[in-house]
């Protein structure tokens, strides 16, 4: 595989003391599994850590494996290849961002119609929805007890979404990381 290089231009000066952070994690290895078989025992909306990788049930018949390349390879060993199953490398086709901060849900609620309260979308919740009019897979994946979301969209929309998130996060004191 060619060396990954993110297409996102980050001309913003990072502020380590900020209260909310947006990072470009597009280099993360991404493997998509489309299958008419149940996979990893995960139903649509759920996620689970398998070794160092994160497996997310992004659609009723679709699963996404995220992580370092060896971790994703190891997790992929658990794919049930019966029935009609497709495994697609997605690393270069998608942008992946991480939004972290106590008020991250408040930011998302400005630009996305999903209810991001703890009651409706607990840690580990996976869904797909429009974020700033861009179709995204969204995974709630808290970091050290601080609210955090992974957002994945088509790579061609990545720069737009990155800028839109920074724009919407202005009032929350967002900074690139």
């Amino acid at each position: 595989m060619p060396e990954f290089e993110s297409a996102i231009i980050k001309t913003y000066a990072p502020n380590p003391g900020a209260s909310m952070f947006l990072s470009d994690e597009s280099a993360t290895t991404k493997l998509l599994v489309r299958s008419d078989q149940a996979q990893f025992g995960l139903v649509f909306g759920a996620s689970s850590a398998v070794g160092e990788a994160l497996i997310c049930a992004t659609r009723p018949d679709e699963w996404l494996i995220l992580g370092s390349e060896p971790a994703v390879d190891a997790a992929a060993a658990g794919i049930d290849s019966g029935g009609f199953t497709n495994v697609i490398p997605f690393t270069h086709g998608r942008s992946l961002f991480r939004l972290t901060g106590a008020h991250a849900a408040g930011l998302l609620e400005k630009i996305c119609g999903i209810d991001w309260s703890d009651a409706m979308t607990p840690e580990g919740a996976v869904t797909s929805a429009s974020v700033a009019l861009t179709t995204c897979d969204i995974i709630r994946h808290d970091r050290n007890g601080i609210r955090s979301y992974l957002l994945m969209c088509d790579r061609s929309f990545g720069q737009y979404l990155f800028d839109a998130l920074l724009d919407a996060g202005d009032e929350f004191g967002i900074s690139v990381e």
Binding site: F44, G45, A46, S48, T121, P122, G124, A125
Partner: peptide
């Protein structure tokens, strides 16, 4: 319902 999955 409204609630979305979560951690398995």
């Amino acid at each position: 319902g409204n609630k979305i999955g979560g951690k398995a």
